[in-house]
Design a protein around this nucleic acid. Structure first.
Length: 276
DNA sequence: AAATGACGCAACCGCCAACTC
DNA sequence: CGAGTTGGCGGTTGCGTCATT
C-alpha cells in the first residue's frame, strides 16, 4: 500500500518553533478562549501573541474541524447524510466545503473523508468483483492501487454510480434505505456561510470539559459572527425545511435499489463496540 | 496468536483567491 | 495599484484500531 516513508515529525518541529501534530487539550483550551474573545478570526495573531506555537492555518483548521460547537464528532454519517453527499457530489463534484454546507454539524473534512473512504471501498469491491480480476473468489489481496489523484474524475463518478445501482448497501454501513431514522430534514440553504450551527445535539466533549455550557456565548463577542447568524440558521431550519432540493433524485435513487439482502455478504455491519 | 489489511480520521501540504497595507 | 499576507479549499498522508486470514 502506501506505507512508504514514515515521516516522524510530530510533537514539535524545530524549524521556526512551529508546533505540529496532534493537539493537546491545553492547546484546545487556549484556542477556544481566543475564539471566545475575538471570534473565529485573526488566526495568525494567536501565534504572534505567543499563545500557541501553531500557525494560523493550523489553529483555524482545529477550530473548524474539531472545536466548533455543534459538530457531530464521532457520529457516523446517517443514511440520509450519505445520500446527500452522494447526490451533491454528483451535482457539484468534489466541492467538499460546498457540500458540507448542506449538512449540519459536518465539516468539509468530514465529507471529504467520507467520500474517499467510500471511493476506496467501491474501488476495492469493483476490483474483486469484476470478471477480469475476480479470479473466482475474494482473494482480496488485489492491491488496492489508489489511483493517484489526477485520474478521471468523471469516470470515478460513473463507477460509483454504477456501483451504487448494483450494490446499494455499499452506500451505508448502517442501514437500509427503509429505516431512515432522520425524517427531519438536515438540509439547509446552499448559500449560507461556511460555519454550520445546529441545534444542540450533544455538547462537544472539549467544550463541556472546560465547562462552557453556552455555545451562544462562544460567539457573543464576535460581531459579524454573532447571534444574528444563529438566528438566521435556526430560522432556516425551523421555518424552511428544504425538502424539495434533492428529494426527487434521492427517491429515484432509492427506487432503483434492488433488495439489500443481495449483497449482505459484502458489507459487514459495524460491531456494536464501535458505538461509543 | 501473530501478521496483514482495511478503515476512520486528524492534520499536513500546496495552491491560490481574497484581503490588507 | 501591487506586493505581501492570510486563510479557504482540495488532496494527501500517517497512524491507531479493528477485522480478517
Amino acid at each position: 500500500m502506501m506505507e512508504g516513508r514514515k515521516r516522524i515529525v510530530h510533537h514539535h518541529d524545530e524549524m521556526g518553533d512551529i508546533k505540529k501534530g496532534p493537539w493537546k487539550a491545553e492547546e484546545d483550551e487556549v484556542l477556544i478562549n481566543h475564539v471566545k474573545k475575538y471570534g473565529p478570526r485573526d488566526w495568525s495573531s494567536i501565534r504572534s501573541k505567543g499563545l500557541l506555537q501553531r500557525t494560523g492555518k493550523s489553529c483555524r483548521l482545529r477550530w473548524v474541524n474539531k472545536l466548533r460547537p455543534n459538530l457531530k464528532n464521532g457520529v457516523k454519517f446517517s443514511a440520509e447524510e450519505e445520500r446527500t453527499v452522494i447526490d451533491l457530489q454528483a451535482q457539484f463534484g468534489n466541492k467538499w466545503a460546498k457540500i458540507a454546507t448542506y449538512l449540519h454539524g459536518r465539516t468539509d473534512n468530514d465529507v471529504k473523508n467520507f467520500w474517499s473512504s467510500r471511493q476506496k471501498r467501491l474501488k476495492r469491491i469493483l476490483q474483486s468483483s469484476t470478471p477480469s480480476s475476480s479470479k473466482s473468489h475474494k482473494n482480496s489481496k488485489e492491491a488496492p492501487k489508489l489511483s493517484s489523484s489526477t485520474e478521471e474524475e468523471s469516470s470515478n463518478i460513473d463507477d460509483s454510480e454504477t456501483m451504487i445501482k448494483m450494490m446499494p448497501n455499499l452506500l451505508s454501513y448502517e442501514e437500509s434505505p427503509l429505516q431512515l431514522d432522520e425524517s427531519k430534514s438536515s438540509f439547509s440553504f446552499p448559500e449560507i456561510p461556511q460555519l454550520q450551527l445546529d441545534f444542540p445535539l450533544e455538547s462537544h466533549d472539549i467544550i463541556s470539559r472546560i465547562g462552557d455550557p453556552s455555545f451562544d456565548d462562544v460567539f457573543a463577542n464576535s460581531s459579524d459572527f454573532g447571534s444574528s447568524f444563529f438566528a438566521h440558521e435556526r430560522s432556516c431550519q425551523i421555518g424552511g425545511k428544504v425538502e424539495s432540493l434533492d428529494a426527487v433524485t434521492l427517491d429515484s435513487f432509492i427506487d432503483d435499489f434492488p433488495p439489500i439482502e443481495t449483497f449482505d455478504h459484502i458489507e459487514p455491519l459495524p460491531s456494536p463496540s464501535e458505538w461509543s
